[in-house]
Write a protein that binds this DNA or RNA. Sequence first.
DNA 1: AAGCTTCCCAACCGCTTACAA
DNA 2: TTTGTAAGCGGTTGGGAAGCT
Length: 322
Amino acid sequence: MGRAPCCDKANVKRGPWSPEEDAKLKSYIEEHGTGGNWIALPHKIGLKRCGKSCRLRWLNYLRPNIKHGSFSEEEDHIICTLYLSIGSRWSIIAAQLPGRTDNDIKNYWNTKLKKKLMGKQRKDQQSSKRGSQIKLEMKREAVEDLKVPSLCMNMNLYQSFWPTEFPLMLTNPNQHQHHQELHVKTQDPTFEHYHFDTTSNQPELFNQNDEKHISSVAYHPQLPNTPYFVNADGMNPFQEFNNFPFGINEFGCNATQVEQFDGLVGGLDNFVNGSNCRSSSAESTASWVDPIACPPPPPMTYEDCGRGLLQSCPSEQPSRFQ
DNA sequence: AAGCTTCCCAACCGCTTACAA
DNA sequence: TTTGTAAGCGGTTGGGAAGCT
């Protein structure tokens, strides 16, 4: 049995909205608001439309301050960078671009920006003499399939290129006075996380029962824009980083790019992790976060585990999230 | 000018999440 | 704690516009 329909599809109009319908919906909402019930709204106004359709029309087209028309270079840059950092979480990306809707951005990405990016990749690839043939091939495939963003959200693909240890980069190497917590998912089926105290510079590793059991990682604050953990064997788990098929440097960390994040609403910590970000710094977090060179943020809350950031999560909520 | 293809974007679909009862 | 319902969200589709032959 399928899901019950949200409305009587036989009696609702579908397809493009007429100017009259737009005017009805707009004037009603401007005067009365939505009343918190989109389903009931079309009946109140006498529109033969599904409530969901009304909501979408209002949010994507009718509501005030919607920006239509071409995207600026700055907007392009923000979209690209956020996409590569957090994937297709359009609502989050849209929140950083006032006046733009998630639908707008999604369409723009799918129809233009993605191709623009691919074109740039191909061009650079042709002129570049760096790297082996294999590396170029990997890069080409990754760009063409646009697997790079999905890699960020999909551990199975991800682990082809990224280390098994997964330290969170949303730490500020320059702010040792702040206590930061890092949650780490590894390929190990047991859920592990780091609890990192920037005062002592000592990361501590906990198991899924929240018991401290290993202290096998070292922190290297002298490498602010690189993965700076080494494991117990003294290996940098990010050593594969340089083999990443995508041209990190093309969107990578540089002063100009990072500075652009200063204008983001609420700062990077807000869009990536919302209120869950532990950084208490009043200054811009953007100055120290490289959203591209970073791996995707591990879940800052247990709920985030279920949002597709990682493939598997403990069946029970670890006590530290409770 | 006609026919065909590609592009673009508004709208839809259905799954997930949130929340009230 | 469970269940039902609406909102939120991201993927997909359909059709008009634009471009090409």
